[in-house]
Write a protein that binds this DNA or RNA. Structure first.
Length: 505
RNA sequence: GGCCCCAUAGUCUAGCGGUUAGGACGUCGGCCUCUCACGCCGAAAUCCCGGGUUCAAUUCCCGGUGGGGUCACCA
């Protein structure tokens, strides 16, 4: 059996959006599963809208996702000659013909048909059976012409067996003689796509269901050329919560792949989420630790026929994107090997200019770094949380959360004394660890007759700037004796200071 | 509007004639606890409607409704 060859043919008219990303991902998964080749083809024949920057952005998006291709990227525009030859061949065979109707004439006819509420509003076949003389007359008139495919005027239908939707056919009577070459000589998508897929020896076309109803036309093109018709598998679409098509224009950055890269998603977690939109194995699994895991499980049979909704609510203060996407990212964040997580966190810290190269080298500092990640990652959802919520662990310059400061640090004016006292006790410790710090703090509270919670929560805010975080003794230990004590003393000064102005207060 | 496709909680889904309709996210409550998170326990919430077929329909058939796709000299 010949090897499977699939393709991903984005048109470079904008960033890679989640629909395209999912199509690319499914094609890639399939190829990895079945051991074939993925061809990348940039369909740039729409000169008006195509830009090189978009093409680059799409490539970047794919690379970030970890999607690799085996051939290309080919540029569709490089094969214009081949497309024209194909069209010419169709005309020679009599499978297509030149049509001299002007756009105005066609528009008028269409309007008339609409006004008359005719069910068939396609091309009426005016130029379908022109004699050589008539044609010559139009040519000498200088009329421009398009090339139309000659749909057989007979009973019956064209169809194909879609791997997802099953037998899909359309009655020939429903099809009009569609244009395959523009008057300026440039072939249309329906033709160039077929010509390219044939030239690239594509055996399976896996694409969005928006192409489903156009596929019979393409099948006719293959057949007219005497080419093997590839298999088709159409994937249901991804819509927004209002069931509208996803578009950058309507939804903004949140539907682009770069958004997820820039907002702290792990590339693979993003893929994992995308894969689950409209595909399942039948078991309850939704976390695929590695690409290999997913590849093993993937199959066309699991693809849903119904459209799925990308559950993003604009302006939601709690969820920057689909909550499930966030959840899957968090799941990966806390279950992947810490050593694999480390480079991603490093990237974030570097971007924030708070990376210390000592954390890179082997030894204690490296160990400290990895252990810290283990300690804090369980409560984060995004990689960016490591530079915001976790900032105090990596940098001595950290912001003080206004609410937490008010709630815990200024809870009791006496904390202005308690915190330095605690610092003094901790400083005196010869062995500074989880147990000794806890014993020390609790003993102090006992002596002062205060609840440990008071000192614990105040300490947390003092040394991390936040009211939430890991257990306090873990934080003491992670931060180390010197930094902990210095911060306790330093922030004790804030206890009785007037509240810093904040939007909240 | 014509043609085509689809239809299980708010969302992603399992189900393929007989189930207390399963799981996940989200929501709410509880446990744990120095906070938050994790984890654990629990709750609310679903078979679009109407006809058939059948001893029995979420499941099969038909119709309706709803949603989507597509009807270009865009891709």
């Amino acid at each position: 059996m010949a090897e499977i060859r699939v393709r991903f043919p984005p048109s470079p008219t904008g960033y890679l959006h989640i629909g395209g990303a999912r199509t690319a991902l499914y094609n890639w998964l399939l190829v990895k599963k079945l051991g074939g080749k993925l061809v990348l083809r940039i369909e740039d024949t729409d000169v008006e809208r195509s830009t090189e920057a978009s093409a680059q952005a799409i490539l970047d998006g794919l690379k970030w996702m970890g999607i690799t291709w085996d051939e290309g990227p080919y540029l569709q525009s490089d094969y214009a000659e081949h497309h024209r030859e194909t069209a010419e061949a169709l005309v020679q065979k009599g499978a297509a013909y030149r049509c001299y109707c002007t756009k105005e004439e066609l528009a008028a006819k269409r309007e008339a048909a609409q006004a008359a509420k005719k069910s068939f509003q396609g091309y009426d076949g005016t130029c379908r059976d022109l004699t050589d003389e008539q044609r010559a007359a139009f040519e000498s008139e200088g009329r421009e012409s398009v090339v139309r495919f000659r749909v057989p005027r007979q009973e019956g239908s064209v169809g194909f067996n879609d791997l997802v939707f099953g037998l899909t056919e359309v009655s020939l009577a429903e099809l009009d003689d569609f244009v395959i070459v523009r008057s300026n000589g440039v072939p249309l998508y329906v033709l160039s796509n077929v010509a390219d897929d044939h030239r690239d020896r594509i055996t399976l076309v896996l694409r969005g269901a928006d192409h489903l109803v156009n596929t019979p036309k393409q099948v006719m093109l293959y057949q007219a050329m005497g080419w093997d018709v590839p298999q088709f598998a159409h994937m249901a679409l991804t819509l927004d919560p209002k069931k509208a098509k996803i578009s950058k224009r309507r939804h903004g950055e949140v539907v682009t792949v770069q958004f997820y890269r820039d907002h702290g998603f792990l590339p693979w977690a993003f893929c994992n989420f995308m894969a689950m939109l409209g595909w399942s194995t039948g078991d309850d699994r939704e976390l695929y630790e590695t690409p290999e895991d997913l590849i093993r499980a993937f199959s066309i049979e699991g693809m849903a026929k119904r459209n799925s909704v990308f559950n993003y609510r604009k302006g939601d203060p709690k969820f920057i994107t689909d909550p499930k996407a966030l959840h899957i990212n968090a799941l990966h964040l806390r279950t992947m090997a810490v050593a694999d997580l480390a480079p991603h966190v490093k990237q974030q810290l570097e971007a924030a200019s708070i990376w210390d190269t000592a954390w890179d080298e082997g030894g204690d500092r490296r160990t400290w770094f990895l252990e810290l990640l283990e300690l804090i990652r369980v409560r984060y959802h995004l990689l960016t949380d490591f530079v915001t919520l976790a900032r105090a662990f990596f940098d001595d310059d950290y912001p003080m959360d206004a609410k937490a400061t008010k709630k815990s640090l200024r809870k009791d004016p006496a904390l202005a004394q308690y915190l330095p006292q605690l610092a003094e006790r901790l400083e005196g410790l010869e062995t500074y660890n989880l147990e000794t710090t806890e014993t020390t703090l609790r003993a102090l509270c006992e002596e002062l007759s205060i609840k440990p919670g008071l000192l614990i929560n105040a300490s947390r805010v003092a040394i991390t700037g936040q009211g939430v975080g890991p257990g306090i003794f873990d934080v003491f230990t992670a931060l180390g004796q010197d930094r902990t004590c210095a911060r306790l003393r330093d922030k004790a000064k804030l206890v009785e200071q007037p509240a810093t102005p904040s939007p909240q207060s």
